[in-house]
Amino acid sequence: MAEKNGCTTVEEGGFQVVKVQGEVDLSWSQKLRKSILDALGKSQKVAVDLSQVTYIDSSGIAALVEGFQSARGKGQHFSLVSVSQPVIAVLELARLDRVFPIFESLDLAAQS
C-alpha cells in the first residue's frame, strides 16, 4: 500500500491512456474522474490502465462508469486495460465486469 496515489495521461498507439496508480478512494477519485473526461475530450480512443491500482472504492468505480457512459454517448472507444486483481474483484462485486470493455493490454484493446 506504499505506492503513491495519482494518475497520468499519455498518448500511446493512438490512444489517450490514463495510467492510474495506488489506492483510489474518495480523497482523490474526483481527480481521476476529471482526467478521464479530459482524455475523452482529446481523443476518440481512451484506455484506462489499472495495472498499478492496489485498491479502488465505489467513488473510483463511479469515475470509470461516468467515463464509459460519456464515451458511449458520443460513440467513442473506452476501455479498461491491464486491470489489477483488486480492481477486478470490486468490478465483479458490483457486477460491472461485463459492462466495461476490459482488455489484458493496450495492444488487445487496439485490435478490437
Binding site: D57, S58, I61, V65, A94, V99
Partner: peptide
C-alpha cells in the same frame, strides 16, 4: 438496483 449502470450509489450495495 444494480441492473441500472450509473455512477454513484454503489457503496450500500457493496
Amino acid at each position: 438496483d444494480l441492473s441500472h449502470c450509473r455512477p454513484g450509489g454503489l457503496g450500500v450495495n457493496l
